[in-house]
Design a binder for these strands. Sequence first.
DNA 1: CCTCACACCTGGGTGC
DNA 2: TGCACCCAGGTGTGAG
Length: 305
Amino acid sequence: MPELPEVEVVRSGLEPAVTGARVESVTVLDTRSLRRHDGPAEDFVDRLAGRTILGVVRRGKFLWLPLSADGDAGPEALVAHLGMSGQVLLRDRSTDDALTRIRLELRHPRLAELRLNFVDQRIFGSMAIDPLVATGDGRPGGYSGALAPWPDAWIPGQVAHIARDPLDPAFDDARFLAALAKRRTGIKRALLDQTLVSGIGNIYADESLWAARIHFDEPTGTLSARRARTLLAEVRLVLARALAEGGTSFDAQYVNVNGASGYFSHSLNAYGRHGQECPRCGRPLERASFMNRNSHFCPHCQRLR
DNA sequence: CCTCACACCTGGGTGC
DNA sequence: TGCACCCAGGTGTGAG
């Protein structure tokens, strides 16, 4: 479940159920879902089994579950990225899901036994055990909700290069705007670059650009500081609204930890609406090929300057 | 260092 | 029904 709102729906669903739970057993059904793990599947299983989950943290589209100490190893976390089609489903111990790639059996002190199925059709997502490293700015590594004994200024090594997301209180607006102004590329490319700002994918890039009336291919070099600030504000509004509606779902693939879909697809103004009327000006929205995917926009409201 | 093209993958839906 | 084809919301890597 890809973009920030959908991943946050997963994070917030996992948090009360897995915080404090012990990992009783781990089954790797497809080793390709360990693409991000540095080592063989046996190493993943050995390092995860028996440990207790301390919380659930998210930065952008990355999730990680800090783990209790294990011998001489430094602080580590179970990292999960959902890629294009990943799901994390909480089930009872008798329920299986098609396309489950990794299965964890958990025991929670109050909620007792449960099963966590990592499901992924395309296998662009993956799990990993990764050492935690100190954040560069001393601020919390990501968002961990209210329950966890975080915030701690730690982040998995493999996530450290990802920028903070626009809903993170430690996101530095001035730094982002300065970095954006230095780029020599199109604005949508920049929005999708997770090392510049994280959490935005194809849907919310198109929605934010539509809201800010900016063409997806407008060069970052000609975007005024004022319009860039407007765009950042619209990004935040779009992400927050989508989050409030439980994320965007077009089909059964993008669901929360209980398998339920969000409602934001009903609130989309541009994404997937090519051929239909622009909700603002009434003229037809268009779709254009861009970066091996599609961009949805209003050619009247979003003119290339 | 920055930018961009490309590789990595499957199965559900659609149309003939 | 069967089957070929199309499509999908992301990230890491390496060339230039």
